[in-house]
Amino acid sequence: MICIIALVVFGILGIFSATHRKLAWEALDCVIRKTTFRKCRTALDERLRSKISGKVIGKFPKTGAFIYKHFAIFSYAFTLLFLVSLVYSGISIYNFAVYGNCNGPEEIPGFCIFDPAGGQTKVTSSETCTASSEGTLKTLDTINITRFPRLDRGSNHTVVFIGCYACPYTRQSYPELQKLMREDVNIVFAHFPTKGMTEYLSAYDYCLYEKDPELLWHFNDALFQEPVESLTNEQRILDIISSFGIDAHEIQECTTMNATQSRVQEQLAALQTLGVYGTPTVFVDGQPLVGPRPFRTYKSLLRKNGN
């Protein structure tokens, strides 16, 4: 059985070394003969058995002898482990290609926890946060998604991007959203302030979108490039808005209106109903992904759904 492992290991090493290439051939011969219930002609298995046991027997005679005597069992166990790890490696490679990580769609990389009071840890990392410990997302049909800013292209696909301007993971993920915006998809954007300090920006989102939907996307581009420290500086926000060639004070006035505040609260409540607990949260045709993912992951899901 050890020949199976030897075949793979020596096969890879054999790409670079002629000595190992010869051993790989011996291992192949051994595997073929063993699978047809014949004795290994090259005795590679016996040599490996003796070499491994020999290395140990000098220092630990009993252990070395034990390995030698029970080598077949060790071989089977290691081969089994090897095959299992080979399968998992294959799955991981597939996941990496499709989802951008080795653990598949369920893995949660770093994301920002919803914490408006600011008393908790502001961000998580993949080591400390899992979906189960944070909550369960509901499906999009539990809320009225039409109440959020939308870039409608009449596509069959819709990506809902829920992010926070101050969240480093949302900021990391935003360029991927920009790429998505160049695809044939409808985009819905929802600001989910994981910190209280950026909550006021939701109102600016609404007012700008109401004035001209295009303005919101320019506003997003600008805010995600802005240093996080500037996001609490409302004057800086007004300067950004002014740079779009519109009256910033008019927008500022809009943010204080009851209708605006009411819509912002409605949106926040809808996101909480949806079960959003951190950012970024992205729904690709209804399938949620929490944490930043590469563009290919989103693209792959869109392709699956017929793009």
Partner: peptide
């Protein structure tokens, strides 16, 4: 004991 195994062990261990 396989003599080849014994020879390899003597080499590897000592």
């Amino acid at each position: 004991i396989d003599p080849h195994a014994l020879a390899i062990m003597l080499d590897q261990s000592a």
